[in-house]
C-alpha cells in the first residue's frame, strides 16, 4: 500500500511540476463554460439547473481525457524511466493503480474547480442540489472510465501522439456504443444479444441516467467494472511488454 501511495504522490506532483496542470485546468474550465453558456443556452433556458453544463462533459472529456492519459506510460517508455520503476520493489498492479489514481484525482481537481457554476445556479434560483451532486459524481465516474481506457492504451506504445489518437477513437466508440452509428455496425450480422450487450456498454447512457439525479447501483457497477477491466488490461500489457 505504501508503494501505491508513493507512486500516486510522485505522479500527482508531476502534473504540477510542468505547465500541463495549468494548461489542462484552464482549457477545461474555459471549454466547460463556453459549452454550457453558448451551446447549452444556460441563461436562455431560464431554469436553475446544471443540465446544459453536464450535457457537454462527455464531448469535452473525449478530447481532454486522452490528453491527460497519453503520457501515463508512453512517457515512461520514451524516457526509459519504466526500467527504473519496474526494477523497484513494486508490483505492476501497484504501479498501475498509483498512476491511474493520480490522473483520476487530477481530473477530479479540474472538475471541482467548476464550482462557480454551482454557486451561480444557487444564486439565480433554487436548483435541486442533490441532482447536481449526482451529476458531478456521474461526471467524475465517466472521467475515471475514460482514463482507465487511456491508461491501458498509453502502456502499449512509447509514442504519446499514437496513444492520444487511439484513445480518442476507442473512447468515441464507448461513448456512442448505444447509438445507431456504432450499433449499425453490429446489427447486420450479430445476434440481438450481442447488439444489446454493445448498447449496454455506452458511457453516455449510464452517465445520462446518473446525471438525471438517480444513482442506480447498476450504473455504479458499470463504471466500476469498466475501470477494473481496463486497469487489469493495463497490467497485462505491462507484464507482457516491459521493455521497449
Amino acid at each position: 500500500m505504501h508503494n501505491v501511495r508513493a507512486i500516486f504522490r510522485r505522479e500527482f506532483a508531476s502534473y504540477f511540476a510542468t505547465p500541463l496542470a495549468f494548461v489542462f485546468i484552464v482549457i477545461f474550465l474555459l471549454l466547460a463554460g463556453v459549452f454550457a453558456f453558448y451551446l447549452g443556452g444556460f441563461y436562455e433556458r431560464g431554469q436553475a439547473d446544471l443540465t446544459p453544463f453536464f450535457t457537454y462533459h462527455p464531448w469535452l472529456y473525449l478530447f481532454l481525457i486522452p490528453a491527460l492519459s497519453m503520457r501515463l506510460w508512453a512517457e515512461e517508455r520514451k524516457s526509459g524511466s519504466i526500467e527504473l520503476l519496474m526494477t523497484l520493489p513494486v508490483t505492476a498492479w501497484q504501479a498501475v493503480l498509483g498512476k491511474y489514481l493520480a490522473a483520476w484525482c487530477f481530473a477530479g481537481v479540474a472538475l471541482a474547480l467548476t464550482f462557480p457554476m454551482w454557486i451561480t445556479v444557487n444564486y439565480l434560483g433554487e436548483p435541486d442540489n442533490g441532482a447536481i451532486l449526482a451529476a458531478y459524481i456521474g461526471s467524475f465516474l465517466m472521467a475515471g472510465g475514460l482514463l482507465a481506457i487511456g491508461a491501458c492504451i498509453s502502456a502499449t506504445t512509447r509514442n504519446q501522439v499514437i496513444a492520444f489518437i487511439f484513445t480518442v477513437v476507442i473512447c468515441f466508440g464507448f461513448l456512442l456504443s448505444g447509438f445507431p452509428l456504432v450499433l449499425n455496425l453490429f446489427k447486420g450480422w450479430a445476434p440481438q444479444a450481442v447488439v444489446d450487450a454493445v448498447a449496454s456498454l455506452s458511457f453516455l447512457t449510464h452517465f445520462g441516467s446518473i446525471s438525471k439525479g438517480v444513482i442506480d447501483l447498476r450504473d455504479l457497477l458499470y463504471f466500476g467494472t469498466m475501470i477494473a477491466a481496463w486497469l487489469a488490461a493495463n497490467v497485462i500489457v505491462l507484464e507482457m511488454k516491459k521493455a521497449d
Binding site: 510542468t18 524516457s79 526509459g80 524511466s81 527504473l84
Partner: peptide
C-alpha cells in the same frame, strides 16, 4: 540502468 533514467521534471 544504462543511461541513468530518472524522472526529469
Amino acid at each position: 540502468p544504462e543511461g541513468a533514467p530518472s524522472y526529469a521534471e
